[in-house]
Each structure stands twice: as C-alpha cells, then as structure tokens.
Nucleic acid binder design. Structure first.
Lengths: 348, 348
DNA sequence: ATGAAAGCGCTAACAT
DNA sequence: ATGTTAGCGCTTTCAT
C-alpha cells in the first residue's frame, strides 16, 4: 500500500497541511515539528504522487519534446543537451518522436503534447510549424520553443545556415577553386534554402558568378532530400558532365548527402579531394571517421539553451519573443583538400 | 479558462457522471443524451486533463524509458520501434537518457521513473540492473522490462550475442582463415563476455585452437570499451606483432570499435580485407557506408516487442517472467573479404 | 504555528 | 438511464 501524506500526518500526529508545508519547505512550521515530520516521512519511505502533485499545483513539471528521429545525430546531440540541463531543474521529458516526415502523426503529437495537464511546455525540433496550428496555439497558455526551425510568434533557437554555407564556399575560394558547385537538398526546406543563399552570396561577393550547371537540387524528396541516396543521384548528374566541365569543388548541403556524393565518386574511381573537393554540413559523427570537411553546429549547446529558454518562458509568459541564432563553424578535415598550388605534394 | 466536464454537464443539462460515461463509452447512457453531450463537448472543444484522469484512474498511461544515449544507433532504432508501437496504444514515453555511464545518474533516474504516479511501467535498456535495486523493485507494483540486458526476475528481450559471434567467426573459417583474432570490449560487460564465448566456441568446434596472442580485450574502459578509441588501441597492439604472427582475420566486438581498428590499419597503410579481414557487430548505420561486414540485431523489432511485453505485463502482473532472445544476422559486406583462394581476383 | 477544509478535474460507486 | 457524491493524493486558503 503506497504511503500518503495522511499516513505521515497520522504517525506524526499533525495535520496534512503541516506535512505538506514541511515537505515543501514552507516557512511557517516550527523546527521540531518539521524535524519530526521529516523523520516519519523518511521512515515510511514516502514518495509524493507525481500526478496528484501536478493536479494540485496545476503544473506537470514535464516538457514535451517533438523530435524527428530521422535527423539522427542532430537530434541525438540536442537531446543530450536537453537531458543534462533539464535534469538539474527537476523536469521530465515526454518524448514524441517522428519516424517519418508524416504530417498526420506530427499533428497528433502536437495535439497530444498540448493536451491539458500533459506538459508545461513543448519544444519543437526541426519541423515546420503549420500556420493554422500556430494561430490556434497562441490561445493556449503553454509556451512552445522552436529549435532548428522558426516562426515569428514563438521563441526560437536556430543556426545560421547562410553563414555556415558562406564559410564553406569561401573556404573553397580561398583554396583557389573557381568552379565551385553545390549539391542541395530540397530548396523548399528552409535550411536548404538558406544554405543555398550562403553559397551564392559567397560566390558573387568574391567575384565568381553562379553557374547553373554546377548546382543540383535534390530529385529524391524523402527527408526533403537530406539523404544519402539524394546525394548519390545528384552527384551522378554532376559526373555525367564531361570532365573539364565539372566543378572542382562541391559544397553539399548535408553530411548524409555527402556520403552519397562520395560513393558516387568512388563508383567513378574518383577521390576527394584529389579529383573533386567536398565540404558537407552538420558534422555528424560519421564525418569525423571519414575525414569529411564540414560545417559544425553547436547541437549540445542548442539543447541546453532551449531548456533555459523554456524555463524563462515558463516564469514569464509575457516577455518579448526571442530568436537566437548560433553561428556554425567550419571544421577542416581531409575532403576539402589544401591550397591548390600545393596539391601536388598531397598524398593520401 | 480551460473547459471541464462540469462545463459540459451544465451546458448539456446533465450530471458530470453522465458526461464522464459518454466520454468513456460506458454503455448505460441513452443514445440521445450521448449525442447531445458529445455535441457540446465538441463545441466547447473539450480536452480531458491528463493528470486528473490519471489520478482518478490510478493509471498514468505513461511508460518510462531509461536509455543510455551513448549506444547511439542501437538506442535510436529501438526507440523508433517503441515509439511506433506505443503510439497505437495511447501511451506516452517519458525519456530518461544517460549521457555517461554514471551510476549515480542511473539511480536517480531509476528512482524517478519508479516514483508513485509517474509511469505505469519502466523499460530499461542496455544497462545492468544493480542487484540491490532489483530486490527493492520487486516490492513495487510496477512492471519493468529489460531490453538488451537481463535479470532472472524480470521480463527481458535480448539478442543472442553468442550466436552472432559464432556466426561471424564461422564465416572467417568458411572463408579459409586459420589465424582468427578477436578484439573485444571489456569482458566484464555481459555482451562482451557472450561475444567472446561465441568466438571461442566457433574456433574450438571447428578444429582451431584459441590463441591468446590473437585476442585483445579493451584497455580503455570508457563505455566498457565499446568505443572507437578502444578499438584503435587494441588494433595497434595487434599490429605491433611481426607481420607473419598477426591474425589474418579479426572479429571485433562492436562496429564502433571496428572503426578504430580500421583507422589503425590505415595508419599502418593496411587495408581490409586485403591485409586483414574484419567483421564487426551491431550494424550501425556507419557500417553500411564503409562496407563493414557485421552482425545485425533486429533493433526496431526489439523495440516493438518490448512494448508488447510491457502491455501484457500491465494486463497480467502475475504471469510467468519471460525471456526472449533474438538471433542476430551476419551481414556480409566488403571488409571480410571472399574465399581465400579467390582473393587474387579481388580488387577494390 | 497548525488543523480543518476546500479545491484541482476526473472516475466510479451509489442511489434513484 | 441518470444525478449525486465520495474519493484519487496533494496544495493552499482560512480559521484559530
């Protein structure tokens, strides 16, 4: 039989109110009754009932996290940041993981996460918030933090995709490349769009012109083109070009795509960086293993920060909406090659 | 102001009991009142309060999952199975992710997950259950399912590590290898121990003897030796041997370790399978990318099954404890090489 | 400082 | 078939 505060009250010969007070560190209770109650509580091995507490306090101490599993390492690392931080704050995480980019499932999660008495707030990851839901949501008294996606009416934490793409492309330019291509995911996805813009800006701001032949967007739409297969297919298109019409360097909009790109090259007996230099985006764990130069996002930090934002918001519902953007970092490894003039000296 | 069943009752001119009955599909309510109540509930956009329901029903409809994040893809895939299955059953997942193999954090999670009114059951992944906790837990009326770990007193779902290791080793034998080594994680970990047994059994049952020089267990203890670094260090030890005293094939106890093994080989200008053939274990996503032959576990299925077990157990607390073991499958890719006699014909 | 009692929003037993 | 009421286990106001 589970022990309740009534059991404690009876054994300690006090009222339940007093028990509740000592358990919650309320000031108005004499030191000796406090001590006595605490002792009894401990002896009885008392544990508060989470749901009963939540109901009475009108607070669940739970945060719902809606996360697309298919972002793999991205989500995994962000989640670690969240977990570490939230732990110290006494909150629990309710997980809603999307296996597919399925709008219906997404909506059912959204509904569930926003159900009364389920969670104090919801964190949404890498998912475009449907506008109709955004409107509806604003009337619910429950904060929502957007991570790796944005909407003007909600707090968001993102990464500056444009800056990352710019840095990657600029690096190629600094290395002496002039024929710089890009293999993009589906440009309908905001990150893909932003990365494209960064790429193009780096080109034009540095005296190079954008060449349509060097740019391929994804033909495979699964995961918005952020997939190995999509990268493979796009690279095959590039390799269809006569050798001297090909780009000498390619910025790929994600590391998974870069995997496919590298496979395609291998199938043509080509190597990076010797034949074509490659830079990816994301810095998934794999990237390190294969020496892929890429753009790294502070995922763990983003997770930590998002929890901070959530708690701020929980404490102050009416503060101004904030948008925080992290600047990603170029991680130079092998696949981008070195200064073109030195290339002859490079061996694998 | 959130709408409650009292609001519905008032508007529909019925008692709250009736409202509750129609909302819960109880039989004793006339079709027309049912319809009326339903209509009002819909118009008022009613949502039940999760915690209030839980308190009254003495049921949270939540399952706690304690998962080591550092198992990466293993956990990710299992989690996908769980999520897909649990979704169809109206349960939610409370996530407790371990970032490090930290016993203290583990215990605090265990405590939290088993707190009254927090979750109806807990699923424990890849984590050795401390015996003292197992004893204590048996008195709690809350089922626990063990996944990828085992304890005689609790339902468990595991993979037959021994059989997987046997299959991997046997494959080397079939390929004509005679000097077959193993690079193991920390043998204190049950999976490592079991994989070692399978390796040894395959050797001795097929007329080969176990050679201590060909066997290395992990010197690096982080993650029980299931790490890239541990694999790297162990392989370096192997490569310290004179060339003709080295094994010609090595079974590695995990894919992450195999990554390190491959790096070590690269640093010695060696290649798999040409110089030394390699087979891993786990079939992480990476394995496919780099052509690593490995042993694959039905992770998604295990997740699905674990949820099934949990619900069975929730429905019948006193049924006999079950232990289910999946047989893993050898996935043949490039790093194990082909029949030794044909080797000359192979080119990368 | 402390006890009694009224909620929190729901379910379920008990009347009728 | 339906309304009323007593919990579920806790917090918090209101007396004292």
């Amino acid at each position: 039989m589970p022990v309740t505060i009534y059991d404690i009250a009876k054994t300690a010969s006090v009222g339940v109110g007093t028990v509740s007070r000592v358990l919650n560190n309320h000031p108005n209770v004499s030191p000796k009754t406090r001590e006595r109650v605490l002792k009894v509580a401990h002896e009885l091995n008392y544990q508060p009932h989470a749901f009963a507490q939540g109901l009475a306090r009108k607070k669940t101490n739970t945060i719902a996290a809606i996360i697309p599993f298919f972002t793999n390492y991205f989500f995994l690392e962000v989640l670690q940041g969240i977990q570490d931080k939230i732990l110290t704050l006494g909150y629990d995480i309710m997980l809603y993981g999307l296996n597919e980019n399925d709008p219906e499932q997404f909506e059912s999660y959204l509904l569930r996460a926003t159900q009364k008495g389920r969670a104090d707030g919801v964190m949404l990851f890498s998912l475009r918030l449907p506008e109709f839901f955004a409107q509806k949501y604003k009337h619910i008294n429950q904060p929502m933090i957007l991570v790796d996606c944005a909407h003007q009416d909600f707090d968001s934490i993102t990464v500056d995709n444009r800056a990352g793409a710019y840095a990657a492309t600029k690096h190629f330019i600094d290395l002496g490349h002039e024929k710089i291509g890009m293999i993009n995911a589906n440009p309908i996805s905001p990150p893909a769009q932003q990365r494209f813009e960064g790429y193009k800006a780096a080109l034009t701001e540095n005296g190079l012109s954008f060449n349509q032949n060097f740019y391929k967007s994804s033909k495979i739409m699964k995961y918005d083109g952020f997939s190995r297969e999509a990268g493979y297919v796009s690279m095959m298109e590039v390799l269809d070009l006569p050798k001297d019409e090909r780009p000498t360097a390619i910025f790929v909009s994600s590391d998974v795509q870069a995997m496919g790109v590298l496979s395609a090259m291998r199938d043509h007996n080509l190597q990076a960086p010797d034949d074509i230099a490659i830079v990816g985006f994301d810095d998934i764990e794999l990237a390190q293993h294969i020496g892929l130069t890429t753009v790294s996002q502070p995922m763990y930090e983003m997770g930590v920060l998002s929890v901070g934002r959530m708690l701020d918001r929980l404490a102050n519902r009416n503060g101004a909406v904030t948008h925080t953007s992290f600047t990603p970092k170029l991680i130079i490894r092998e696949t981008c090659g070195q200064l073109k003039t030195k290339l002859a000296a490079v061996d694998e």
